[in-house]
Structure formats: C-alpha cells, structure tokens
Design a protein around this nucleic acid. Structure first.
Lengths: 140, 140
DNA sequence: CTTGACCCTGTACCTTGGTACAGGGTTTAT
DNA sequence: ATAAACCCTGTACCAAGGTACAGGGTCAAG
C-alpha cells in the first residue's frame, strides 16, 4: 500500500497542510502511521475521505455534521438509514433557508422599488420605510 | 425628553444590555448622556435606531454594512442615492445566494432519491454517490 | 444601614474553519 | 557538508456578533 506525506496529500486534495492537521486533530480522518522521525503517512483512503469531506462541505454540511455522518458511515450497520435521515434533515434545512432568503429578496425588491427615478433627492423612501416606527417622532 | 437607562432600553428592544454597550463601542448608536455616577441615558431616538438595526440585520445586512449605511443616512445629502445602490447591491447578493442554495437543494434531492424504499440495507447509495472517486478502490 | 437590583469598565471567551507563526528536527539534492 | 525543502508541535490569531465574568460603584426599599 502506497503511503503519502502530508504535503503530497495536500497537493492532491488541493487543501492546505494545516487543514489536514486540523482534520487530524478533529478526528475527521483516521490517525496516520508515522515514520521514525514522526512524519505523518497517509494512504489513498485518506485522500478519498478528504475529497468526500470537501464535497459534502460544499453541500452546506458543517464539519460537526460531517463528523457525525462519518461516524455513521464507518459503522456499516444501519448506516444507510441514518444517512438517509441526515440528508432529508439537511434538505429540510436548505429549503427553509431558501424560503427565508426569498422573503428577504422580496423585502429588498420592495425597498428598491420605492425609489423614484430621480435618485438624489433629500427624502429617502428606503430609510423612511425601514424607520416606519419613527413616523411622527422628533426630527433633530 | 424622556431618558431611559440601559436596562429599560434592553427590555424595550428585546436585546441584551451587553449588546447595547457593544453597539455603543462600535459607534452604531449615538453616545448617551450620562448621570453624575456614569449611568448611560438614552432617548427614544436610540430605541428607534436599535430597532432599525435589528430589522435590517434580519434582512441579511452585517453590522459593518449597517454602520456604513447609518453613516450615509446621517449625512443627509446624497443619502438616497447611496441607499439605493446599497440595496441594489445587497439584492444581487441575496439572489446569488438563493441560486446557490437551490443548486444544493437539487443535489440533496438527488441523493435522497437514490435511496430505495428498503432503507436498512448495507450498501448506502448516498455514500457511494458521494464517494464516486473511490469506485473500485480497496475495501477494508 | 444593609440587601438586592441596578450600573460601570475592562478583559476574556465563545463558535467555525481554518491560517500563521515560532522554534525546532529531518531529508534530499548538490 | 550544507542549504533548501520538507516535517513536527504548540500556540496565537482571524472574522462576526456578541456573551460572560471580575471587581468594583450606586440607588431605593425595608
């Protein structure tokens, strides 16, 4: 079995060496074997795992979630059901977030549309709209 | 003009006292007057400003952006044009983020759909899909 | 006159996902 | 044999938006 030093792994996976040590500390990758002088030695398995981590991180999973997930994946039994639940749960999260963002989009669009064509006038309808609890209070 | 102590303001605005001191330090609210013993005293204006901050924070603005925005708003001239640009820029951001999230949603949905009805089997299609660079490598 | 509820400042700490040294040791190439 | 390139550990630091003390002062009620 071929073994690689941290720098090679970093280059292959396109991550920082420090990131790999960080994943090591966090227990996201299995403990490497070491040379007599203490250098870390990793196998292809770790390359796959790092790429896996990066891929699902892009899907919006946090490292904590990934950690849990990998724990599940490493167990072999029931792992499929757990994975399924995990993905379903995350999907739910993402959908909620999208709805939230769309709400924000609406509000911003609304604010934008309040602006007349002549943009350099003194009263700002945007500020007024946001400050609508101020309405008839003091102006100083 | 009525003046309130920090605790009252905190209760009214439903934020922590520490948060108000933090906003004070950050220059997000105007410097309070003080009692002889150093207690902060705020007016209604500050209540409105804190509520304003909270409202646009919910719209996805960071405190740094809000700081800039309030600076613009306090200047009175050109403020409307700047506000407009700000909102347009933020709207763009939000739209990009939504598209991103929708891409993630698609991928998660795809992963979910790979699961057969019998969920407790040993091979996990989700893990397999995510690990597709592993394919014919070692199983140990 | 003392207890409890306030308030003050200053500093440290939290989370997340790393990055950046400092101060060493090792290996490889010339 | 020595310099460059690599590795090690341990610690501090980054953004953001606060929170949590520690160690003190102040104010109103009983």
């Amino acid at each position: 079995m071929v073994e690689y030093r941290i720098g090679e792994i970093a280059k292959t996976c396109n991550v920082n060496k420090e990131t790999i040590r960080y994943y090591d500390r966090m227990g996201l990758i299995s403990k490497p074997t070491r040379t007599d002088s203490g250098y870390r030695l990793y196998s292809d398995e770790t390359i796959n795992r790092i790429l896996f981590i990066k891929r699902i991180q892009d899907l919006g999973f946090t490292l904590t979630e990934i950690h849990k997930l990998l724990g599940v994946a490493d167990k072999e039994e029931v792992r499929c059901a757990d994975m399924y639940d995990f993905v379903v749960h995350k999907l739910d999260d993402v959908r909620k977030k999208i709805i939230d963002m769309q709400r924000i989009e609406c509000m911003l669009t609304d604010l934008k549309n309040r602006c007349p064509d002549e943009k350099a006038i003194h009263e700002c309808p945007i500020i007024e709209a946001l400050m609508d609890n101020k309405e008839k209070e003091e102006h100083q």
